[in-house]
């Protein structure tokens, strides 16, 4: 479970859930996994299962709270960043972290969630998690490549050195 704890947490956070809601999602996902263990036919696919369940539970909590989630479900457009991090954290974190954090926050909910999840995917589950979250939109192509490009574009203006270019 330790291998996947970051994955579940960051999918919930990618949906902009606060500490309490994200904790509820994470705990529920682990409890669901335990209750589903007898029926999971392929243990190797657990990464994809966790990613799908974490996303669904995050969306459920957003719906329950009456928040609009159409964009989180389908969209690729970005939303204004919120102030979900305390000023103290930002100051301590330093410029490099702040730049990456801001570039992530400027992404659409879907890109943000996907990249957060992939950043915390164990290597052997990467393909499953990618498949679980990365649904092609129309004929545009895989979301992942577009999301990585958008993050890169966001960073390029302020922090090209982070891209190794």
């Amino acid at each position: 479970m330790d291998r996947y704890s970051g994955l579940v947490w960051h999918i919930a956070r990618g949906h902009r859930l606060g500490d309490a809601d994200a904790s509820d999602v994470a705990q529920t996902v682990w409890l669901r996994l335990v209750e589903s263990l007898p029926r999971l036919r392929e243990p190797a696919a657990v990464g994809g299962w966790l990613a799908t369940t974490a996303r669904n539970e995050s969306l459920r909590l957003l719906r329950r709270a009456g928040r609009e989630v159409v964009e989180a479900d389908l969209g690729l457009e970005s939303t204004p960043a919120d102030d979900s991090y305390s000023p103290e954290v930002v100051v301590e974190a330093g410029e490099r972290r702040e730049l990456v954090r801001r570039a992530l926050d400027d992404l659409s909910p879907r890109c943000r969630t996907l990249l957060r999840a992939l950043a915390f995917s164990p290597d052997d589950s990467y393909a499953d998690i990618s498949a679980a979250l990365d649904m092609p939109v129309g004929s545009i192509g895989p979301t992942r490549g577009r999301c990585l490009d958008r993050l890169r574009q966001g960073l390029r203006a302020d922090a090209p050195h982070l891209l190794g270019e």
């Binding site: 974190a93 972290r97 950043a119």
Partner: peptide, 13 residues
Amino acid sequence: LLAEVRNVLTEVD
């Protein structure tokens, strides 16, 4: 890039 994202998020969140 993903490794950088991971490093940053591990620190700030």
